[in-house]
């Protein structure tokens, strides 16, 4: 059996704070198989964006990767020299960020920014690069792509900019695309366009996607498998349908309950009592214990680890 496309084992990321180290990603395990779309769900501060940055070693100091392993097609990424890492970024693994309005350089045309990526990784001449750039824009559904190459970012709408960024990310046909909340800053209608683009890329290019979001509905729409993160670690993992039908971790259950349904249009919105732990400040034992409705004594003392419970993997002492 071939190794998984992406494998994170015991990943720890943190930064120095007040003399100690605050961990924002704690002992995280994650696997992505080739051809999968994995949704990573969690609220702000759950460490999901840091995980994404860690994979490409883009964590800026003073933050840093504290430990664990990151393997891409079996190859250890953490031990690679920076030059090799640079060849992977944008060519083997790509990332798309949240805010399309500020992620494109306003002083260069979209075409220039696109072709620069292509030229850097594929070493072709400008003309070929332009052709490939046009193709990339076409793939993400931008009309009249060759004319659009000459435009500046400010001439693109928000949704178009995000699609242009996706085009830049897939222009060199990476195997894995990490999308860190790509639709959060967009209108609902535009969100649908971006999801559509991602689905198309999965189908036409066989692209594997890690889709990071706090929006459960999008996960249900696009992803094969879902991973729920809380306080820097994975608490539950399963195929999407199974996760939504039978959530086993108390946090997952609470999350799903929180999503308002048209059916119960009346009545107050459900929330989860309490707040997630402050960045880096985690209690011993299960991080969700203070807010959990099913908590038992063991939860406070021992930190749960991911174990198989039927067709899920759950990190919880009381899940069954």
């Amino acid at each position: 059996m071939s190794p998984p496309l992406l494998e994170l084992r015991g990943l720890r990321v943190g930064f120095p704070a007040g003399g100690a180290i605050a961990e924002v990603v704690r002992d995280l395990d994650l696997t992505v198989q080739a051809g999968e779309v994995v949704g990573v769900v969690g609220e702000s501060g759950s460490g999901k964006s840091m995980t994404a940055l860690a994979v490409l070693r883009l964590i800026s100091p003073p933050g840093r990767i504290l430990g664990g392993a990151i393997r891409f097609s079996g190859e250890d990424l953490l031990g690679l020299p920076e030059a090799r890492m640079r060849r992977i970024r944008g060519a083997a693994i790509s990332i798309v960020f949240q805010d399309p309005m500020t992620s494109l350089n306003p002083a260069f045309t979209v075409g220039r920014q696109l072709t620069d990526v292509i030229v850097t990784h594929q070493g072709v001449d400008r003309r070929t690069a332009r052709e490939r750039a046009t193709e990339a824009l076409r793939l993400v559904g931008i009309p009249s792509p060759d004319a659009r190459l000459r435009d500046y970012p400010h001439q693109f709408s928000g949704g178009m900019r995000q699609r242009a960024l996706i085009a830049m990310a897939i222009a060199c046909r990476p195997r894995l695309l990490i999308a860190d909340e790509p639709t959060t800053a967009l209108d609902v209608t535009v969100q649908a366009q971006v999801i559509h683009v991602l689905r198309r890329l999965r189908d036409e290019l066989g692209l594997s996607i890690v889709f990071i979001t706090h929006n459960l509905d999008l996960v249900a729409e696009l992803c094969d498998r879902a991973v729920v993160m809380y306080a820097g670690t994975v608490v539950e993992e399963a195929e999407v349908a199974t996760l939504f039908n039978r959530p086993r971790h108390p946090y997952t259950r609470a999350l799903i309950r929180c999503v308002p349904r048209l059916a119960d249009a009346s009545g107050p919105l459900t929330t989860i009592e309490g707040a997630p732990p402050a960045l880096g400040d985690h209690p011993a034992g299960c991080a969700f214990a203070p807010r959990c409705g099913d908590v038992v004594a063991q939860c406070h003392g021992e930190r749960p680890y991911l174990r198989d419970v039927e067709d899920h993997r759950v990190a919880c002492w009381v899940a069954k």
Partner: peptide, 11 residues
Amino acid sequence: DYIRTARALGL
């Protein structure tokens, strides 16, 4: 952010 994008794309 746009410099972050450039770094993320391996330039």
